[in-house]
Amino acid sequence: MLELNDVRLPGASVAFAHTFAAGEISVVLGANQSGKTDLCRLIAGLPTRASGAVRIDGEPVVAGPRHRPVAMVYQAFINYPNLTVAENIASPLKARRRAQAEIAAAVHELAAKLGLEHLLQRQPAELSGGQQQRLAIARALAKDARVLLLDEPLVNLDFKLREALQTELRALLKASDTVVVYTTSDPRDAFALGDEVVLLSSGEKLQAGAPIAVYTNPSSLAAMQLLSDPGVNLFERDGHTHAVRPEHLRVSTDGELSFDLRVTANETNGDESFVHGVVEERDWVVRTRGMLEALPGDVLRLSARHDDVRRFT
């Protein structure tokens, strides 16, 4: 269990507290500059502009990074360039003076888990980006720390690798009783990996909870925006701001609520279409299944259900 109290991230006007549960993956979701990296650095004890009290399993943690039970995977692929893959994985175990046989066994086990067995004698520079990040994850796991921080680990990977590694990560990280904190700016990661999602905006905690619960019951417009990709669509009714997600709009005339969208652009990837346009002088985007024939200048009649619309004051 990782307890944070009185956390003040740079740019935030209020402090927050949060408790991360052991054996769960907590996805910290926030845009760039929202303080995700500072949060990780605070937990790891690295130099940062953030401040706050950290307790692990009830014990206050004040030691420097060298003596903290915390492992970390960086966004950039950071490995020891002069050591082989095997030596890299062994590094945290060596630092703790484990027996040779024990180290060798652990290295082989982790290499197998992360698909690096055939690369053990290579140098990190001879690996692909995906393999380099697998290596960084293997080394972090080798430390077998109480807390594992992953700071946007998949951002620098290309699309396909990211998808593949994401699925593996869930199985890999769930298998232990470690506190896993995974930061990202992609809402999909929250659903794919998270037992819990923590929404972070400008250094402040907006909301936390199970991803589906937060999705269905956002506490604020900012929280709803953060968990939506592309962004939510806004409209005014009775002096209140209402919001509806792009995936909750249908192109039809028979909904509970109707809108006229003047199309400005239409992007499709075959599987999904994103239609951009203007409704009541606000920019909207609609997400629909399959291909949608809509040209700029067309007017589409959209409908939504009352249950899918959120009202914010």
Binding site: P65, M72, Y74, I78, N82, A95
Partner: peptide
């Protein structure tokens, strides 16, 4: 990258080890 220095610390290595065994060789 400074992250390499930090990672060595997180791995539990002393500064001396990092400097002599990692930083100078690279």
């Amino acid at each position: 990258p400074t992250e390499l220095d930090e990672m060595a610390q997180l791995d539990g290595h002393s500064f001396g080890y990092f400097f002599l065994r990692v930083f100078l060789p690279i």
